[in-house]
């Protein structure tokens, strides 16, 4: 664990649950984020919303790789999201 997290913010929790399922499917995609993604309350610093976000480990190697993998997964599944942020 690097202690650095990325957060996928969604407009609707229905998309967040789809994303969580996709990220947790074993071996679903070569682009699958490598760390245990999970739904958490959206950090207050990122949004005033009451919803959930998909948190994932940004890893040691470079935050860009993990974020790119997450974007690729969401795009491949057609799951709409608001943005990806770091906190």
């Amino acid at each position: 664990m690097s202690g650095r997290y990325g957060y996928v913010l969604f407009h609707t929790s229905a998309a967040a649950f789809r994303a969580e399922k996709a990220a947790r499917e074993p071996g679903a995609s070569g682009n699958r984020p490598s760390t245990g993604a999970r739904l958490v309350p959206t950090p207050r610093a990122l949004s005033s919303d009451c919803g959930v976000s998909l948190r994932f480990d940004l890893g040691e190697a470079g935050a860009g790789d993990a974020e790119r993998a997450m974007r690729a997964l969401l795009d491949a599944r057609g799951i709409p999201f608001d943005r990806i942020a770091e906190a």
Binding site: S13, V40, P41, V52
Partner: peptide
């Protein structure tokens, strides 16, 4: 819990 509301 209430689906899609809280984060717990």
């Amino acid at each position: 819990g209430n689906p899609g509301r809280s984060g717990h």
